[in-house]
Amino acid sequence: MTTSELKVAEKWDTALEKGIKRTAYGAIAGGVVAALLFRGVGIRSAILGLGSGIGVGITYAEAKRDFEDLAPQEAPAEGKI
């Protein structure tokens, strides 16, 4: 494997690890909030899903930024800014 392939593999490993952790943390936080504030099963499930979704979204945004840093930077074409 080349160094660029190793960097991509490392980014994927990091992104997956963070994704699993943040999804779990979001679900736990959502579950605690739901258990303390709401009585209905439907709203508890919704809050739990919201917490999980926030964890996934944060991970996605960070992973996207990390993978964009790996992409080669292009110089602007002549005549265009």
Rank of each mutant, 00 (worst) to 15 (best):
W12Y: 01
V8Q: 04
I43W: 06
I20N: 11
K11Q: 13
K64S: 09
E10R: 05
I20R: 12
V33C: 14
I58T: 14
L50D: 05
A75V: 13
K7Y: 02
E10C: 12
E74Y: 04
L50W: 11
E62D: 15
S45M: 14
L6W: 14
T23Q: 04
A77V: 15
G79N: 09
V8W: 08
G40Y: 01
K80F: 09
K7V: 06
A35N: 07
V41I: 00
T3H: 07
G40K: 00
I54N: 01
A71N: 07
M1Y: 02
F38T: 05
A75F: 15
I81E: 14
L50H: 01
A71I: 10
T59C: 05
G31I: 07
D66Q: 11
E5D: 12
K64F: 15
V41F: 09
A34M: 03
G19A: 06
I58C: 11
L16M: 04
A34G: 10
G51V: 00
A15N: 07
S4D: 03
V8R: 12
A35P: 01
D66M: 04
S52E: 09
M1G: 12
E10F: 06
A77R: 08
L48E: 02
E74V: 12
A9T: 02
G57R: 06
E5N: 08
E68C: 08
A9N: 04
T3W: 09
W12K: 01
A27L: 03
I47K: 01
A71L: 14
G42A: 14
K18W: 03
A63R: 12
A27M: 10
T23E: 00
I54K: 00
M1V: 10
A71C: 04
F38A: 11
G53I: 04
A75L: 14
I58W: 05
P72E: 08
A61C: 08
T14C: 13
G55T: 06
D66S: 11
A24M: 09
I28H: 10
A35M: 11
R65Q: 10
M1E: 11
A29T: 13
P76C: 13
S4C: 03
S52N: 02
I20D: 15
I54W: 15
A35G: 08
V56Q: 01
V32Y: 10
